[in-house]
Amino acid sequence: MSIAKNKVVQFFYTLKDEAGVELESNVGADPVAYLHGHNNMMRGVEKALEGHNIGDKFNVTLPPEETYGLRREDSEQRVPVKHLLGAKKWKPGMMAVIQTDQGQRQVTVVKVGKFMVTVDNNHPMAGRTLDFELIVTDIRDATPEEVTHGHAHGIGGHHH
């Protein structure tokens, strides 16, 4: 069975930057699970996985437009310090999580005041060309419920 629309795909990944430095990996943890063809995965990663089979291991280098997007220079915002999640004391350069209307979002602290903080809303990896090592561990047909909900259920996927 190969990866195509309405298949639930599980995979391991190792993410490296332009210099080959490892940034993240889920190898040794639970695999990522997603419903293929439903915009649940970065566009470039989903395109790279299309047509692959269980056991396939490969690398793909993707431009920012296919992953976390280009950096937007007008994306700084001032928010109350109390809205930042992840630490008690904040310093420029630290990563924080804020709650938005679209869910949680990772931001970078730019400037800290007594009550307000300036954050950069760009994803920390925006604007970077990234290398993904992908290992396909499982492919199965999605259940009718998963297709209706538009996402995978179970380990590595969504839990209701």
Rank of each mutant, 00 (worst) to 15 (best):
N6C: 04
F115G: 15
T129S: 04
L70F: 12
V27L: 04
V110C: 08
E73C: 03
I98W: 08
L35I: 07
N26K: 02
R105T: 02
K5Y: 08
V27I: 12
H83P: 08
G69F: 01
I135L: 15
A29C: 06
T118L: 13
L49P: 07
A29P: 00
M41G: 03
E22D: 02
N6E: 15
V147K: 12
G37H: 09
A87L: 09
V109Y: 12
E18T: 06
R71N: 02
W90P: 02
P63A: 00
D138K: 15
D17S: 02
T118K: 08
Q99M: 14
V97T: 15
G103S: 03
E66Q: 03
P144V: 01
W90R: 03
K114H: 14
R72S: 09
V79A: 02
D56L: 03
V21P: 03
V97E: 11
F12E: 10
E50G: 06
T100A: 01
P92T: 10
T148N: 06
V79R: 06
K82H: 14
P124I: 00
V119E: 13
K7P: 13
A29R: 12
V21Y: 07
P124S: 00
V9K: 03
N40S: 06
V97Q: 10
R72P: 00
M95N: 15
D74C: 05
A33R: 08
K82A: 14
P92K: 13
L85S: 09
